[in-house]
């Protein structure tokens, strides 16, 4: 688990004063209290983190629920920029990435991830309604580790997630 500078500051504050409240930390660091709570919860969370990126809220929500039921810690992003920010801040164990999104599409997000020295090792599974072979090839060429076309079977997706994670865990 990789921690960023904010996490380190929070840990320092807790070390100084074990009884410090979340609101106090929020005030001292100028960060929302909800985020402080989430970060503190993450310190002790050993679940695998999955970043789920899809502009369709109606897809994002049920998928998040399903994966959380599988005991994953799921973060959602509805566009490419948000996805890159979250990925950088949290370094998830896996990214489920939709391709057709406004602004920055999934190909661009994947390309950015694979260029970044830290994030390039995060496995990426492309999720998309595009099922032409050339699009699959394009996604794999850019650096995606797997490719699942919509509509998919939830169990199949879960199995692929485990497979990819296992492969990367071994590495």
């Amino acid at each position: 688990m990789i921690r960023d500078a904010i996490d380190n500051k929070i840990i320092e504050l807790i070390k100084k004063n074990e009884k410090i409240s979340n609101s106090e930390i929020s005030r001292l660091l100028g960060i929302r209290e909800a985020e402080i709570a989430e970060r503190i919860q993450n310190f002790s969370d050993t679940r695998s983190k999955i970043l789920l990126v899809d502009d369709e809220i109606d897809t994002l929500l049920p998928l998040k629920l399903s994966l959380e039921a599988e005991d994953y810690l799921v973060m959602g992003a509805s566009n490419g920029f948000e996805a890159l920010e979250l990925a950088k801040a949290n370094i998830p164990d896996l990214i489920l990435l939709d391709i057709m999104m406004p602004g920055m599409d999934g190909y661009e997000v994947c390309a950015h991830l694979k260029k970044d020295p830290v994030m390039k090792n995060i496995p990426v599974i492309m999720l998309t309604a595009k099922d032409a072979v050339r699009e699959k090839v394009k996604g794999l060429d850019i650096g995606a580790d797997d490719y699942v076309t919509k509509p998919f079977n939830l169990n199949e997706l879960k199995a692929r997630i485990k497979s990819v994670m296992r492969r990367f865990g071994d590495q």
């Binding site: 897809t59 309604a129 509509p151 998919f152």
Partner: peptide, 24 residues
Amino acid sequence: SLVSHELKTPLSSMKISAEHLESE
């Protein structure tokens, strides 16, 4: 591609939701 996407996206949402409802 668009038709495919436009038709499959709602299907996908429905399927995930339905499968989740069914399995949990």
